[in-house]
Design a protein around this nucleic acid. Sequence first.
DNA 1: CATGAATGAGCTTTCATTCAT
DNA 2: TATGAATGAAAGCTCATTCAT
Lengths: 193, 193, 193, 193
Amino acid sequence: MDVFARKGFFLSKVSEIAKKAGVADGTIYLYFKNKDDLLISIFEEKMREINASFRDALAQEPDALSRFRRLIRMHLEGFQSYPELASVLLVELRQSSRFMREYKKVELKNYLDLIGKVVEQGQREGVFRSDISVSLVKRLIFGTLDEMVSTWVLAGRPYELVTLTEPVLDLLLHGIQRENDSIRKKPLQEDVT
Amino acid sequence: MDVFARKGFFLSKVSEIAKKAGVADGTIYLYFKNKDDLLISIFEEKMREINASFRDALAQEPDALSRFRRLIRMHLEGFQSYPELASVLLVELRQSSRFMREYKKVELKNYLDLIGKVVEQGQREGVFRSDISVSLVKRLIFGTLDEMVSTWVLAGRPYELVTLTEPVLDLLLHGIQRENDSIRKKPLQEDVT
Amino acid sequence: MDVFARKGFFLSKVSEIAKKAGVADGTIYLYFKNKDDLLISIFEEKMREINASFRDALAQEPDALSRFRRLIRMHLEGFQSYPELASVLLVELRQSSRFMREYKKVELKNYLDLIGKVVEQGQREGVFRSDISVSLVKRLIFGTLDEMVSTWVLAGRPYELVTLTEPVLDLLLHGIQRENDSIRKKPLQEDVT
Amino acid sequence: MDVFARKGFFLSKVSEIAKKAGVADGTIYLYFKNKDDLLISIFEEKMREINASFRDALAQEPDALSRFRRLIRMHLEGFQSYPELASVLLVELRQSSRFMREYKKVELKNYLDLIGKVVEQGQREGVFRSDISVSLVKRLIFGTLDEMVSTWVLAGRPYELVTLTEPVLDLLLHGIQRENDSIRKKPLQEDVT
DNA sequence: CATGAATGAGCTTTCATTCAT
DNA sequence: TATGAATGAAAGCTCATTCAT
């Protein structure tokens, strides 16, 4: 994954991966059908782990809103501690038609479904708007997180990715439009109260 | 661009591009330094056009909110009528480190700045929240649009991309959290008060 | 053909063939689909020439017997002057299932048919026995010639192959059994009796 | 031998042979020096058996003519009941120069000598023509049988090979030319009659 | 004796690039 | 300016062979 992340699929040489792994070139082919299979396999395995750990973590949170916050923080934390995965996920797999078309992306879909479930639960709990499409919200969330990570990686990881948790959460929850006067007063009153 | 979009950079053959363009292989090299330069050049040229037309269009809108709506619609319309560009932008250029690192992305940056300016103006006009980072909002917007287009392309363009304009606008402006009754009523009462 | 004949298909390296031909490795692939195609193509082309020249030569002979003699001499002469072809024909093409199964051997069949026609004509002219199967005779003739050439090649071509013409002709025509008068007459007498 | 016969030397994998033999890959190398040695060894062993059994069988026949008939039938019978050997003999061993040059073919030569001895004996007994070269006749016989088996194998063994015994015997003994004098007289006589 | 995972040399084939015409 | 045949470096992959267990 290190090599794929650094060079990209086509510029990564099997011999380099083998050397990095401390095995002979041929040994790779005892465990993977070919170079494609190698990329997909290591990605799928990692994603399986991530999905499992996310599911566990979310299950511990009491309500949809805290789950949502947890999801975002975990996403950012995860990529922060494993930027190689970010590159592979963001760039290589989404990359060539080769993968996006032929590869079924089971675990990637599982991840998006995880987001979807949190949103649906939030709607049932009444904290999320129910007049919006879940599939659209999934993309709003995933696209935003994706872009945050992507920009961070491409900028050379100049800050702690996880510090974006609250600002991003705020944006996703309340949008960018200024809340009109009435709404603005609310907090004031509450403070008073 | 058709070829690059369909096959991806590494699977696109210079000879195929030449054939599609109706010229001989060697002719390509009279106009472009190499295959890398070819991809970057045609992309930059296209982006320059797009940025120019976007700037013109936005200049015709009276206020920040209508500019914002116009920006989103144009983004979706643009990719809808030119899906090849979408693939190149989304996939090929963001793809290999080769490009993301060495290529300066002048026009891509210009595009993001265009979004940024609309946001800043909205803040000055008082319709956008001023307690949020412009750079963060740029990524919220761009990431979301990106993901919408990306999903649409990969799903085989099964619907009119532009129909997402209003729902996406709504999500970006108001967020996903339900503005609950109490909150809503309170201002009303206060208004009464 | 030189290289294939000397080393055999699998031990012949494309790079060696290219060097011998005075071109770069890649140039081979502008004219042949792959290594298999290369072998089959050069063989088919040669066989086409041979079949044509054989057909012409045989057409000039007045009767079946002289055609038969001519066929045998030409076969032996041909391989004598082009031993490389012999190796390829005898060894490489008959060799691996790869070729014998997938390759249709059009021209090889044409060659066998040429033999068959001479035999049939001989039967019609009454100089060849008509109580024998043409297909069997074809194989008697081809197998014998094949073995003569094969032995000659493998022995290092120690003599003029064409000197075998008359002895072989004699064997094929009269067989190996002694036709002594007594034996021949006996059946006749017995018939009479 | 099964594997070599089915795939040919170069396309046969040592691992496949090992699997078929129910041993580990490495075990092969405890008994054979390398892949070449493996092919030659199993072929030589088989040929030794065959030569021995042929010698025994021929020794039981009373005269050269019956030995000759027996030889041809055994040859055809043998390949019919062991077509794998046919492929190896016909194709693989005669195949690559690698074998034809470096490998001394002791047992193959023994087989040809067996044919030669029958011929010589036939000449001494006066049933075979003594005006013909034994070495030539050996090749006539072997080449013919070879071609019969070869065609049969490549055609997918569509009939009983052994049924060719009498026709082939007839061809080899009497040749393909219509018999002169006596026979020639016959029609004349018949005409007279 | 037997194993089979690991090795790595060496092959075919591709394709960006060149340059004589 | 345009061509496109020729180039040749470079890479994925195979598989005979080895050797620690």
